[in-house]
Amino acid sequence: MALLEVKGLEVKFPMRHGELTALRDVSFSLDKGERLGIVGESGAGKSVAAFAILNLIGRPGYISNGEIIFEGSDLAKMNARQIRSIRGNRINMIFQDPMMTLNPVLTIGTQMIECLQTHMNLNREQARERSIEKLRQVQIPSPEDRIDQYPHELSGGMRQRVVIAIALLTDPSVIIADEPTTALDVTIQAEIMELLLSLCEDNDVALMLITHDLGVVSQVTQRTIVMYAGRVVEEGPTRRIVENARHPYTHGLIDALPERTAPGMRLNQIPGVMPSLAAIPTGCSFNPRCEHVMDVCRSEQPGYVTDGEFRVACHWVAGREQQK
């Protein structure tokens, strides 16, 4: 049985003129120790999906439908107290920008110890010991001194290490990392990703990696979900997706990777932009940008074509499957 299973998740934002649907019928699952990538352009609903799992969507958004089954119970139906015992304890998060993630007026120690005291029965001394231990695991030099410092005394890379240490404090079973390296210097991005990967492997933690960078996903994850305009458009083993993508949008993402372009040539890009949630086209939401667009794409939302571990929502792909 899957560790985390999201079924038919739907998230809505009530606005002055009706409701916006940020997520539609999003389903996926995560096994113990598995690494799952969620890919898409900004605005595709990746972050909303991540926050929805812990019921952390900013007001006035809410989960309007679906189930989030984690270790046998539905997170979407938990009350505030129950979900708090999951947050930061069983499922932890890593945010994009380490400069903004740590509270500037509290010491690193305070921000670590409070987690341990909230979720585990530790006294201050034990909590401090454990925090120093975790700081050492993320390779922060002289953690005994660093723990009493404030975030502004640390570099960006160091801060993201601290955030990773906080995420690992309570020995969680899932870590959701939302663009964990995007805000960092290019030179240390690989280093931080390597660290995160090895710590997840060592501690048998499942990792949900949210990113717009298919390149990173292909190096780190075992399975990949591609999202577009609040919907899952393709899912499958990472290797098969990268080598043999079927949805035209995934194709576009792969072609846009710099390593797919010969040096000196112009980078490929998908024409047009992601539609805003208020103006999602009828039918397949990708149809205005799709090179294989057909009449049916403009009127009917495509269902999923499933093939083992592989599924895709596209009329064009479905049509080709039938011809075979």
Partner: peptide
């Protein structure tokens, strides 16, 4: 609205804290 407050929620801290 700041990220560090969202992070604090994600850490499962109590509302009062």
């Amino acid at each position: 609205e700041q990220d560090y407050i969202r992070f604090a929620w994600a850490k499962g801290l109590s509302r009062t804290r």
